[in-house]
Amino acid sequence: MARWGMVIDLDKCNGCQACEVACRSENNIAVGGPQAASEHRTISWMQVRAEVEGEWPDIRSRFVPQPCMHCDRPPCTLVCPVQATSIDREGIVNQIYARCIGCRYCANACPYTVKFFNWHKPDHPASTEPGLNPDVSVRPVGVIEKCTFCSHRLQKAREMARVETRPLREQDFTTACADSCPTGAIVFGNLDDPTHRVAELSRDPRAFRLQEGLGTEPKVYYLSRRD
């Protein structure tokens, strides 16, 4: 059984935000616009956050791209009253938009602030509809949405592998952000398969996870020479 995970090399990330835009394009994330931005309601499943330390001129900083951590012990799934979010056998924390009642309890329970709520009806102007990815549904108003590790790609890849009667290979399934990273900072794969790069990188001495002390066991690892 696969355990999908991600490794993000912060020493390589230069904050270009290609992953954010690739994710928007892949997952039909609606444009919030200036109004939503001023109200802090922009939805972005992948967020490049900057950590700045020190004072001018002795200042340093790094970019931390943050998708959903897909915790092995996700605090969000436990609190959902309607099973709209759960962790599946391969470790992907999903969100079923048709089930969600929009109570936002999961968003509050998430220590990483990576669950997003559709405060308004997601706006996709009619002329942009042909550009929507048909593999991902357009969310209705009033539900939570989040990074799914591009699980629609997994569905297609697995189907393709079965059509070709072969096992699923490492390159068959990757996320849009990992695909798009120009510096190759984001690597995606099966953490339990020693032949996958993520498995090796997640054991790198530079590896750490966000808020490790909370015991959520995230499956997104970060690499950094800095502590």
Binding site: L78, V79, C80, P81, V82, Q83, A84, R99, C100, I101, G102, C103, R104, Y105, F117, N118, P140, V141, G142, V143, I144
Partner: peptide, 22 residues
């Protein structure tokens, strides 16, 4: 406060026993 008050019955139809909300 619900985003989808039309689905409020899901709480009974698809209860999740670990949720304090339930």
């Amino acid at each position: 406060d619900l985003g989808r008050p039309d689905r409020v019955l899901n709480i009974f139809l698809h209860s999740q026993p670990f949720s304090p909300l339930l």
